[in-house]
Nucleic acid binder design. Structure first.
Length: 251
DNA sequence: ATGTCCCAACTTTTGGGA
């Protein structure tokens, strides 16, 4: 079972690249974030032509998350209590998956930062209450770099969002529900960045962060056969500012 | 580091968000 998570930064702007990537990499399940479209605009047919069923939670201009699956798609779960289109869960052939788009936070003293922490805590509560009998993948754009290894220059992030202690503690609490960050588990020393700012030549300068994460429940983490970032997908014309993160599971 | 990209709209440029 190949699962990918990818913040596409507008599915309208990225559709050709997403379809091309799906054809080339053949994931069984794709978890998308920042589709930035309403449900009635979601390209159901384009994904169906590649063999994918889809579940989309959209709100229009901002946010928007989706699950695409070639392994079945049932028991769709839509959103948290905030009403924003930031979470969709589904069961794909026995695997429970969640596509997450965590609030950005904007700045440490911004109300949006407190909202980010509340949102992460609500996700933690949802995951703490999950059905433990099924394998689960929780993935997406968490807008948090879990450790200093996950940012190009920790000193540049001092006093900024994405690397603050409360955000990292919120991720730790999510992990404590019994999850494993499988990219970091398999690559303990490489940064494995997933996002680079469009500005300032950040990609070519190596100014990135690892904020797109894939968590697998601890009981199935040893079934991970590969976990990697497809950095090449950040290159070329009209890229997203995020790269896809791919995990292969032998379930 | 803030040099870009994407969206909406009182749209052909600006402002908000990331």
């Amino acid at each position: 079972m190949r699962v990918v998570t990818w913040n596409v930064n507008s599915l309208n702007a990225r559709l050709a690249r997403v379809l091309e990537w799906l054809e080339a990499n053949e994931p069984d399940v794709a978890l998308l974030q920042e589709t930035k479209m309403r449900d009635d605009a979601f390209p159901v047919e384009a994904f169906a032509a590649l063999g994918y069923e889809s579940a989309h939670v959209g709100q229009g201009q901002w946010n928007g998350v989706a699950v695409l699956s070639r392994a079945g798609l049932a028991d769709v779960e839509r959103g948290l209590s905030d009403g924003e289109a930031r979470l969709v869960g589904a069961t794909c052939g026995g695997l429970r998956v969640y596509s997450c788009y965590v609030p950005n936070g904007r700045a440490l003293d911004d109300p949006h930062y407190a909202y980010k922490l509340r949102w992460l805590d609500e996700l933690r509560a949802l995951l703490a209450a999950r059905d433990r009998s099924a394998p689960v993948v929780v993935a997406g754009d968490f807008n948090v770099a879990p450790a200093d290894l996950d940012v190009w220059d920790p000193t540049a992030l001092a006093g900024m969002t994405h690397a603050s202690a409360p955000e990292r503690a919120a991720l730790d609490e999510i992990v404590a529900t019994g999850l494993v960050d499988v990219v970091r588990a398999r690559h303990p020393a490489e940064p494995c960045f997933t996002w680079w700012d469009y500005r300032g030549g950040a990609f070519h300068r190596g100014w990135g962060m690892r904020i797109d994460l894939v968590y697998v429940d601890a009981a199935h983490a040893e079934r991970v056969r590969a976990a990697f970032v497809d950095r090449d997908a950040r290159k070329g014309p009209k890229p997203s500012d995020h790269a896809p993160v791919v995990v292969d599971l032998d379930l």
